[in-house]
Computed example of a mutant assay.
Amino acid sequence: MQKISKVESEKIVSSSGWLTRVPSKFRADVLDHSILIQLKKGEVLFHVGDPPGGIYGLVAGTISVSLAPLDHAPRLMLLGIPGHWTGEACFLTRKPRRGEVRAALDTTLLHVPLDALDRMAAKDPMVSHHIAQILMMSVETLLEVVHDLQKPQADRRIASVLQRTIRIGEAPLPSTQSELGIMANASRKQVNAALNQFKDAGWLTNTYRSIIVNDVDALRRYAEAERND
């Protein structure tokens, strides 16, 4: 991956996602306290049970987010996209990490350490409110995930995952068929059949380790269409 400067990274995370929803002064404070970090494909950002830490904003690349209830092993839930922020729960609860986040590709992020957030909050009581917005955006995403998983047809669930994740942009989705099956609660056979169906329709092209979506609107329409069978 081509290295991205701090200035360019700030422009990217300011153009989509959480930072577009907060006041400009707070946005500037977040960026002033942020640190640019690089992860290689496969590197773990944090594990379940790691000590409390700060927040991370995705600049480029892709992160995989694995979650689970307490006392269960985390499972792949979704792929993060540029503008996506994570890590807010530690600031709000002071408890260890509840999920696992790793780089699905070579990835660039901005990191705001926990102590920096605390200093900001000591000066402005609205900081906690602004950070809580990350949590609510995560809840909105998880509601989409639950809604999609309740679709009875596996091919509709698979189309839902693909159209939701294509917000990454034009880069190939770094997902194997097995990983796509986990996110869509579908067997590998079901995933293979759906991908072939979508490929024949011209909506995507795929290899074993990546998928390129050519027509996200067609996938979205298919994912949301009702079918009686």
Rank of each mutant, 00 (worst) to 15 (best):
D200H: 05
P82H: 10
V65M: 07
L45R: 08
S16K: 14
A186G: 13
R167L: 09
S64I: 00
H129C: 04
I211G: 03
E88C: 03
T176K: 01
N192R: 11
V30D: 10
W18P: 05
D29I: 00
V161Y: 02
D29C: 07
H130V: 01
H72D: 12
W85Y: 13
S16A: 11
T205C: 02
L58D: 05
G99N: 14
A193F: 06
M183C: 00
K199D: 12
M183V: 00
A186R: 08
S24T: 15
T20I: 00
K189N: 08
L219A: 11
E179D: 08
R27L: 03
M137A: 10
I35N: 12
A194C: 10
D106Y: 03
R94G: 06
L76W: 01
D29N: 15
P96K: 13
S15Y: 08
I134P: 05
K41D: 10
L45S: 11
E140H: 00
R119Y: 07
A159D: 11
V146D: 14
G169D: 13
A89N: 14
S16T: 09
G53I: 00
A121M: 04
A104V: 05
Q163L: 00
P52C: 04
V191W: 05
S210G: 01
I131V: 15
Q153L: 13
K199G: 07
R220E: 15
E170T: 12
N206F: 13
G17P: 08
V127W: 06
P125V: 08
D215T: 01
F26M: 12
P69G: 01
S9F: 09
P74R: 03
R221F: 11
R164I: 01
R102Y: 12
L105M: 14
L78R: 11
A194G: 07
I158N: 14
G49C: 06
Q2S: 10
S14T: 09
I55D: 09
L143A: 04
V112C: 05
S15D: 15
I158D: 14
H147I: 00
L19T: 01
P69E: 02
R102H: 14
M120S: 10
P51L: 11
K11T: 13
E140F: 00
D106T: 08
K123T: 10
M77F: 04
L58M: 03
R157M: 05
L31D: 10
E8Y: 07
Q197G: 04
